[in-house]
Nucleic acid binder design. Sequence first.
DNA 1: TATTGTTATACTCTATAACTATA
DNA 2: TATAGTTATAGAGTATAACAATA
Lengths: 147, 147
Amino acid sequence: MTALQTQALDQVLRLSQLVAADLARFERESGLTGPRTHLLWVLGLTGPSTQQALAGALSVSPRNVTGLVDGLSASGHVVREPHPTDRRATLVSLTETGRRAVQELQESHEDLAARLFGSVPTERLTAFLATLEETAGTFERLMAELS
Amino acid sequence: MTALQTQALDQVLRLSQLVAADLARFERESGLTGPRTHLLWVLGLTGPSTQQALAGALSVSPRNVTGLVDGLSASGHVVREPHPTDRRATLVSLTETGRRAVQELQESHEDLAARLFGSVPTERLTAFLATLEETAGTFERLMAELS
DNA sequence: TATTGTTATACTCTATAACTATA
DNA sequence: TATAGTTATAGAGTATAACAATA
């Protein structure tokens, strides 16, 4: 007999697998890898960034970012540009191709959400969202504890 | 203005990050890697398996399983044994150490669920679960579509 | 002195293809 | 002939440490 709490978390994980599958489809179709897609996504959120900043945002070593940017640069998704004030640093920016990839991913994500929850009545969905938002405080505490 | 459906899916993803963080903590503390932990988990669910079966369950090449089992064997989490009827095959089983690792992971998962949803009233949680289970049909259809 | 990014080196995960032993 | 697992080879992601250029 599994506790209600565990059942709830398992259902949440089930949905996250769906998102992961959609992400895998995107990567397969675009020829991008997981880590490179992650970097593109972060770059879309933050705008042009130094490799140090990207290393921090991705929780990865600076050396690793060099490799990821090398690959994304070769595929035409990002460009390295000189930092305007610090000559040690480089700014990594999305190209038009990179921007399009991020936008496709965003649209695919929204499309998935619409199809998954589309048939759930608004009141039900609002209550669902409220329950999740109620856990926000606990969430923050647990995340800090796990770092 | 983001749609309610997208907000809901984003909240779900937020929780899955918590589970991922807990998994990362487990891996850090146990010295296991993600793919090796995944193999241990599957082995815990299915019992002793051939490497072919593991390759299928993990959606990974047979060659890859060879490497994962090599590592887990060296760390004492699994053992290779001769298959009782097919001399081409080997059966991979959990050792006592491996079993303990799987159990710790299971307990950590349940503990996380209890702490995350512990303060949510039962009626709220039941409604939450019902909403998620309502999407089961759509979930299956979408998963099939993405394969 | 400290920081940014790269070169050097090494390990894990991943794949395909060829090979061995067995079915 | 087909299947189970391994060896051979290759590429991506990851890390730490040493180094060059710049702050």
